[in-house]
């Protein structure tokens, strides 16, 4: 719908102000956030780029359809992340995507620093993805949102629709597990190992 006297882009076929505004705002959002959304999706899928692209597309579509909801969200960033995580969960529920996940998250070890090697970048990335793959989806999502996006516990909880306590415990346990699995992976990979290296979450 156009307001009286207002022009529109010829041949665009937009007759509704709402549609035109939604399109413009959506494109502006996409320009600013799509790459970051894809990066997040790659981490959430533990390096599965094809699935990550699928999830990003699904999330972008969901956002367009629910654009007014996104705009009115108390925390729009959390809403976007929730859409992405929901897309991942939905995707993983499909039979052909069902994967054998992981063992149980161990009890919190209390240790925040783990030995870490200074391997080449490729090896580190490979170890990261292998370690992320070994974690349950939700734990993976907590780690990505907390440490990649630097979200607060509250915002992470809102994005994942879970209690703050769950975020705290999953972050701590997931971090320990991640370190453990990365160390195992790097130790089993040929190459120089610098045991002095470490990462701090």
């Amino acid at each position: 719908m156009m307001e009286p006297g207002r022009g529109l882009v010829p041949s665009l076929g937009y007759e509704h102000k709402e549609t035109r505004m939604r399109d413009e705002e959506f494109l502006a959002f996409a320009r600013q956030n799509r790459a970051d959304l894809l990066r997040t999706a790659v981490l959430l899928t533990a390096g599965d780029r094809h699935l990550a692209e699928d999830l990003t597309q699904t999330t972008m579509t969901a956002l367009y359809v629910k654009w007014p909801v996104y705009q009115q969200a108390r925390n729009p960033a959390a809403y976007v992340h929730r859409c992405l995580v929901n897309a991942l969960i939905d995707e993983k529920r499909r039979p052909w995507r069902r994967e054998r996940t992981t063992d149980e998250i161990p009890e919190e070890s209390g240790s925040l620093v783990m030995p870490f090697d200074d391997s080449p970048s490729d090896s580190r990335t490979e170890a990261l993805y292998a370690a992320l793959r070994s974690l349950p989806q939700k734990t993976r999502a907590v780690l990505v949102l907390r440490y990649f996006h630097d979200l607060s516990v509250e915002d992470t909880a809102e994005a994942l629709s879970c209690p703050r306590g769950t975020v705290k415990s999953q972050a701590a346990r997931g971090l320990d597990k991640l370190r453990e699995r990365m160390s195992e992976h790097l130790a089993s990979t040929p190459g120089p190992i610098d045991v002095n290296g470490a990462f701090r979450g």
Partner: peptide
């Protein structure tokens, strides 16, 4: 000393900003 955030950024650092055609397809 690398931290987790750096390692994560490193892992996805090759993902560039999308071309306009990708955004139009999303739209």
């Amino acid at each position: 000393m690398a931290d987790l955030r750096n390692i994560m950024y490193e892992a996805v650092s090759d993902i560039a900003e999308p071309e306009e055609s990708v955004l139009r397809t999303d739209l």
